[in-house]
Nucleic acid binder design. Structure first.
Lengths: 140, 140
DNA sequence: TTTAATTATTACTAATTTAGTAATATTTAA
DNA sequence: TTAAATATTACTAAATTAGTAATAATTAAA
């Protein structure tokens, strides 16, 4: 049976990275190498995701030797939805919820409203869930 | 920006087909041609989806000349989730919810529980939503 | 000043999935 | 016997995902 998920591996990895960074103090910077090793993500893929998080203003970075990354804001202020969005994929329950979608059905289709309603429940929940609730208690 | 949906076009089309069939009495049989034209789905794709609905025991079919298909049960007893499942794609919010997934993280990952909880809310809702609420009021 | 270690950035690739088409077999009313 | 319909399997192009490769830019330390 074919499988389909709403979130990609990249979304999952972005959440891991945010949750891992949230276990450190703001003045500690963590290398991509450490993130990659501890979170079981390839180094290059980790670097790319970390970069996206920085573009989204979720992480900051110190470049150069002994550089690394850190969360810019307290994890209490960072939601799961924020991190999901930083990856830059337009996530919808169904295609008819896309911004420029025009439904080809001539008579009223009530599914649109249902999809919209269900999606709203999902997104509102992900906005409420803060990364501070998902901090990894790993051996440092 | 790349787009991603939980449901595919095929899921959407399956729902259209079920909702369209629900607007007829049980003794009326509707041809794939009619479904295809009214619902703006290619004839062949329509036939394939209709076939899947029959395999899932959602529709019945009368073969041969003047044949067609019909809903086997009242639309009040048919949920959106039933129709989604008939398409035969294993739908999950996140990959870690798949049956044989083993998480590679050594320390506890709390996201799994959250994904599970959110997915349950979504699926329970889709089970509650009956096709009878989505009947198309088209010009027959 | 040079080197090493690190993040930044863009381009590429193989595998998978989706969305749809093509072709043919089977069934049944007329 | 024929025509019109569903049944069934196989194929295909485009898009997406997940990941790799390569190189540039930056900065602490030797």
């Amino acid at each position: 049976m074919t499988k389909r998920t709403l979130f990609t591996r990249e979304h999952d990895y972005a959440l891991r990275i945010a949750a891992y960074l949230a276990s450190f103090n703001k003045d500690e910077i963590i290398s991509v190498n450490e993130l990659s090793t501890k979170l079981r993500i390839s180094k290059i893929f980790t670097a790319r995701i970390v970069h996206k998080l920085r573009i989204a203003n979720i992480t900051g970075a110190v470049q150069g030797k002994y550089g690394g990354v850190f969360l810019k804001s307290p994890a209490e202020n960072l939601s799961v939805w924020d991190v999901i969005n930083a990856v830059g994929t337009d996530i919808k329950i169904n295609e008819c919820l896309n911004e420029h979608y025009s439904c080809e059905l001539l008579f009223g289709c009530k599914f649109h409203h249902m999809f919209h309603s269900v999606e709203k429940i999902l997104i509102d929940r992900l906005k409420q869930e803060k990364i501070s609730n998902y901090i990894f208690h790993q051996i440092k």
